[in-house]
Design a protein around this nucleic acid. Structure first.
Lengths: 242, 242
DNA sequence: CGCAGCCTTGATCGTTCTCAACTAAGGTGG
DNA sequence: CCACCTTAGTTGAGAACGATCAAGGCTGCG
């Protein structure tokens, strides 16, 4: 909840205040998952709406021959599946990739709450808009960028999103990276081998450095330039730009 | 409007009925565009919400070195940019690729209408959900499918979406194709040359045939099998399956 | 007739994939 | 404490897919 409030605060302090009312609504219950747990299975009925309190999760789709595409990565403060309000069946799976703490509400109860409180609905509408915008940028990333550009671009996105929720400091250039090479590859539409090599290439030209459980961005501006990273799509305040 | 009503009717007759009330709300005005007209420019303020009456449009993002990625194709009955309700600046462009007739409303007026009518809001919420689902499938298509699979998959998506709005009959296997090879390439994350060749390969194995202004699907089931086309993501009634 | 826009084809180049072997780290049981 | 196993990451070599460059064809239109 704290992460979501920070996210909304960056966008609009008024909306952050509204969303705090959720705490008193009593429709959310806390649930915990371990790394590797499946929260939602493809084809399963959609019954709940989730807010991530802490930890990372991935949303992905698997083809019948084993190919997998991770559609997006969900960080603390992210909400899903607001689709449960309209769709009845999940068309993808969600998996915890770190220990995960979430808040969960029945879709019907959440829908009622939105109906009662227009300002709250607007706040969640904004989160859906931002998520969709991130999805669009993922399409551009996978469709029109090279392997190295994809990695650089994704790293910079993670950095911004983590900054906004206060998970890392604005001047901190170390981005936590709980995704394995396989996950990173499935996120970026590459093979594991090529992902390793593209990462290696970025290291070789001195733009990044990998640490035990993260990636350090050494030359933020050069990295942003080579990846043509334009953070407009995140719809964050300009303060976080540059 | 008729196309949108048909779309909603396929999903939920009740919602289709609700959306008809928009006609009486007097907040929409009709606007026409020619092929090539830009409806929304990247970076421009978002002031309107649109519903396509007839014609096709594309939403795309251009990188500074000229690479372009079409994020999605919008058909009659599709709504955009509902983001205008929350975001203030467009992060992509929208262009008419055929003569286009649309209904346009000021974002503020549309927002008021949604507040007044919860059932109407639910109907548009569903359209946003479906659009997001199509975006996710586009990520899978571009990230994890081969050139031929991408074309086959996109064709089958178009066919379904056009069937739902009554633009083509359920048993009709000729899909109109106003996208040029360049547009198709930018949609699928391929080069124009490779798009031509992948199309040629599908023709060669007898799965499709190109006509003057469309593509005829000759073996729907084989095409669906090779592209692993699973229409669940379109959230349409099962009647349209198979 | 000549131009413009779109499509196609050929040839070559390069990025990315696949297959395969090997290394490193962590966990477990004897 | 060590042998063994599993999981994740790396590296090499060769093949395949798709990009790029370049030329030519088709069609509609002024």
């Amino acid at each position: 909840m704290e992460a979501l409030v920070r996210r909304l605060h960056a966008y609009s302090p008024a909306r952050a205040a509204d969303v705090l009312q959720i705490s008193t609504a009593n429709i959310f219950s806390a649930v915990e998952y371990q790394r590797g747990d499946i929260l939602i299975e493809t084809g399963a009925p959609l019954e709940h709406v989730f807010i991530i309190s802490s930890g990372w999760a991935i949303r992905y789709r698997t083809l019948s021959d084993g190919r997998r595409q991770i559609v997006n990565v969900m960080l603390p403060g992210d909400c899903f599946d607001l689709q449960a309000l309209a769709a009845h069946q999940s068309d993808h799976s969600v998996e915890a990739i770190t220990p995960l703490r979430i808040l969960r509400a029945k879709a019907a109860a959440f829908r009622d709450l939105m109906h009662q409180n227009g300002r709250l609905a607007a706040a969640f509408w904004w989160t859906a808009i931002q998520e969709e915008s991130i999805l669009r940028e993922q399409i551009v990333r996978v469709g029109r960028r090279s392997g190295r550009e994809r990695i650089a671009h994704l790293l910079l996105e993670f950095q911004r999103r983590l900054q906004v929720i206060g998970a890392i400091k604005p001047e901190d250039d170390v981005v936590p990276m709980p995704l394995t090479r396989d996950m990173l590859a499935d996120m970026l539409g590459l093979s594991r081998v090529h992902t390793t090599r593209s990462l290696g290439a970025l290291k070789l030209i001195g733009l990044i450095r990998t640490t035990a459980n993260g990636v350090e961005i050494l030359k933020r501006h050069k990295l942003a330039a080579m990846a043509q990273f334009d953070p407009t799509y995140l719809h964050l305040p300009n303060a976080a730009s540059g």
